[in-house]
């Protein structure tokens, strides 16, 4: 049984400008289940954004396929909504019109009033109500703009929502509030989400699973770390959870050391090259309770 979204042997090569080729990543394969929130972590240059663009249909891979819900992804589609880092709101439209623009594209049969109601409802879900929705994006703060962008994406009920470092340009406090908004709206919608981030704490707060990429070039998705912290999560409570720092340390170690060590290893022909599943759970009964090391259960799938 294939996962809902299946990325199979994705390879991206670019000409390196000196007559040769630069392999950004090779044979990347992983899956995302329906309703799952998957975050991809990795250093700049490992090709996260390229993977995102391929999933969005905005870029073509050199080889490999992306299959979603039994169909190969080809070109951009309303089934895959994207929230870009720089919000990508149309500055000449009001906040409301930026959302209705998307809703009208998604549901061309809807009446104008229905489109407006739907858009207003989703703007309210991210905390934008009243006069604010008639302002132009230039009159909104960065955080509010990203809320509009999130509302636009969720309002379209895409089969897959792609978030490309959505909070990268925001200050830490605003980022926290909008992460909460995102968790809230995601909890209500059972939306499948694939997100890029640089922020480890953000990844743990939001994700069901974190994919770790080795450094580029020739990057690969090395590990898939399950976040064994129950939902609903809350930023102040999760840090108290016994698994939090165990997972966090594992991620820090990977990004700090192992992403370099594992980098540039050419893939072995014939290997599936799927990421190693890592499950860290200190709440599970352990054979050796004295063991201070996080329980590492590596399963090669």
């Amino acid at each position: 049984m294939k996962p809902y979204l299946s990325i199979e042997k994705l390879t991206q090569r670019f000409p390196d400008g000196a007559g040769g080729e630069l392999t950004v990543f090779e044979d990347a394969s992983f899956g995302v289940e329906k309703g799952e929130f998957v975050v991809i972590l990795g250093h700049s240059g490992c090709g996260k954004s390229t993977i995102m663009n391929i999933l969005a249909g905005l870029a073509e891979p050199t080889s490999g396929v992306v299959v979603m819900d039994g169909q190969a992804v080809r070109g951009p589609s309303l089934d895959r909504g994207v929230v870009f880092q720089n919000y990508s709101l149309l500055p000449w439209l009001t906040t409301l019109k930026n959302v209705t623009f998307g809703v009208a594209a998604r549901y061309p049969d809807w009446s104008k009033a229905k489109v407006i109601d739907h858009a207003t409802e989703f703007l309210a879900m991210v905390g934008l109500e009243g006069d604010v929705i008639h302002r132009k994006p230039s009159q909104l703060s960065g955080g509010m703009r990203q809320r509009v962008s999130i509302a636009r994406a969720f309002a379209n009920h895409p089969k897959l929502l792609l978030l490309d470092e959505p909070f990268g340009a925001l200050d830490a406090l605003t980022r926290g509030t909008i992460q909460d908004e995102l968790l809230k709206i995601w909890g209500q919608m059972e939306q499948t989400v694939f997100m890029i981030t640089h922020d480890i704490d953000e990844a743990i707060l939001l994700a069901d699973r974190i994919l770790l990429m080795t450094n580029g070039p020739q990057a690969r998705v090395a590990e898939s770390v399950e976040i064994t912290i129950p939902r609903p999560r809350n930023r102040t409570e999760i840090v108290e959870h016994p698994n939090y720092y165990a997972i966090r340390n594992h991620l820090v170690q990977f990004l700090g050391k192992r992403s370099k060590e594992l980098a540039g290893q050419p893939t072995i022909a014939g290997e599936t090259n799927r990421p190693e599943t890592v499950r860290i759970d200190k709440t599970e009964p352990q054979d050796d309770p004295e063991d201070t090391q996080p329980a590492l259960v590596a399963v090669n799938s």
């Binding site: 969005a56 249909g57 905005l58 951009p76 909504g81 994207v82 870009f84 990508s88 594209a105």
Partner: peptide, 10 residues
Amino acid sequence: DWVNVARTHE
């Protein structure tokens, strides 16, 4: 980006 918005909205 704006062109990409148009593309992702088909």
